[in-house]
């Protein structure tokens, strides 16, 4: 076991607040080949794919440096509009239990596509570290769904880095459901008239550790960003949510909104949040909101008067909180899988 200090916030606050970074003891497994990756696309003429099982150093803003065992680059060609989503499915099993993957997506000018990236594996403890980079060129539009559906004892690290050019739009839907350790980092830099939305659902149970660190830097004029996170923690789970919107000088007329809602379902669970707004530009609108705590008693009471047990009522309310984000996935199989996991909370 080695000690790591990971996922540092872009601006530091007092050390004793305990949120600037996360300290973990990790046992990094031996890195071997991962063979259960599948890419599904019905419009291959509109994309270029390059996938390799290369072993090269991979670093990210999480701060973890490891050798990758899978690399994938998908380029969506200029002006190409994909009607069906590109599905990238990684299935973990006892032979394929370690994945360190680097996925690059290039959205060429005026292209449009949806990606669904799934990490499945229920039987054992797995180790997963993803670095996903997107280059969204001018006028392009992409939606990227990343779902961590791994076994509850797994370790999951997800780092996303984006460059969103003028007038481009990137929407992310992130489901942080599996794993005992869930560390994620999101960075984007926004140019003029670009738009970036992140919608996240997270779950923490047992003794899970979640450390979520998002940072959007707004450079261009009239850019928009929106971070929305819905979560629930139970058992002795410990969650940190750190979200930063950083308005740089010159990003006039830009707007940024950040909201996190965390439902705490047990006496032992701990929720920490650090929603930062950094601003060096006068003409912007920035807002953040955080709410944490118990489920609304009146909602609970209403459902229980309809004959539901307290536990089922709680689940229903959590599902209702998550539903706006789940519905955005627009892939029935994945939506059902996510709901199935929430039901086990």
């Amino acid at each position: 076991m080695e000690k790591y200090t990971l996922n540092q916030t872009p601006v530091r606050t007092a050390k004793n607040f305990g949120i600037n970074d996360i300290n973990l003891e990790l046992e990094i497994p031996q890195i071997k080949e991962f063979c259960n990756a599948m890419i599904m696309c019905y419009e291959m003429d509109k994309i270029e794919v390059n996938d390799e099982k290369v072993h090269e150093k991979m670093t990210s803003k999480i701060g973890l440096e490891l050798d990758s065992n899978y690399s994938l680059e998908i380029k969506v060609l200029e002006n190409a509009h994909l009607k069906e989503p590109i599905i990238i499915d990684f299935s973990f099993d006892d032979e394929n239990d370690v994945l360190i993957d680097n996925i690059k997506i290039v959205m060429e000018k005026a292209s449009k596509a949806t990606f669904i990236i799934k990490y499945n594996g229920e039987d054992e403890k797995y180790f997963h570290y993803l670095k996903q980079e997107t280059s969204a060129m001018q006028d392009s539009e992409c939606k990227i769904v990343i779902a961590n559906l791994l076994n509850k004892d797994s370790e999951s690290f997800i780092a996303i880095e984006n460059n969103i050019e003028n007038n481009a739009k990137a929407e992310y839907i992130l489901a942080e459901l599996g794993g005992r350790t869930k560390i994620s980092n999101y960075y984007a830099n926004l140019k003029e008239f670009s738009e970036n939305n992140i919608k996240t659902i997270y779950l923490g149970t047992n003794e899970d550790i979640l450390d979520i660190n998002y940072n959007i830097e707004v450079y261009g004029k009239s850019a928009k960003c929106n971070i929305e996170a819905q979560g629930a923690i139970n058992g002795k789970a410990h969650k940190n949510f750190k979200g930063t919107i950083d308005f740089k000088q010159g990003c006039a007329n830009s707007k940024g909104i950040e909201n996190e809602n965390c439902v705490i379902l047990s006496e032992e669970a701990k929720s920490k949040s650090l929603p930062m707004l950094l601003c060096k530009e006068e003409n912007v609108e920035g807002e953040h909101g955080v709410s944490s705590g118990k489920i609304d008693k009146s909602k609970l009471f209403y459902l229980m008067t309809k004959g539901l047990s307290e536990k089922d009522s709680q689940k229903l309310i959590v599902k209702a909180n998550f539903s706006k984000i789940i519905n955005k996935i627009q892939n029935e199989d994945l939506e059902n899988k996510v709901i199935e996991i929430i039901d086990k909370i």
């Binding site: 601006v11 606050t13 607040f17 305990g18 949120i19 308005f247 965390c262 705490i264 379902l265 047990s266 006496e267 669970a269 701990k270 929720s271 920490k272 949040s273 650090l274 929603p275 930062m276 707004l277 950094l278 601003c279 006068e282 003409n283 912007v284 609108e285 920035g286 807002e287 953040h288 909101g289 955080v290 709410s291 944490s292 705590g293 118990k294």
Partner: peptide, 23 residues
Amino acid sequence: DTIPTNSIENEDVEFSHEAKIGK
């Protein structure tokens, strides 16, 4: 800049934080 840390260690809490920045 707004740099608020919030730490909640029990479930029986009603907590809300709102911040706005602008001209």
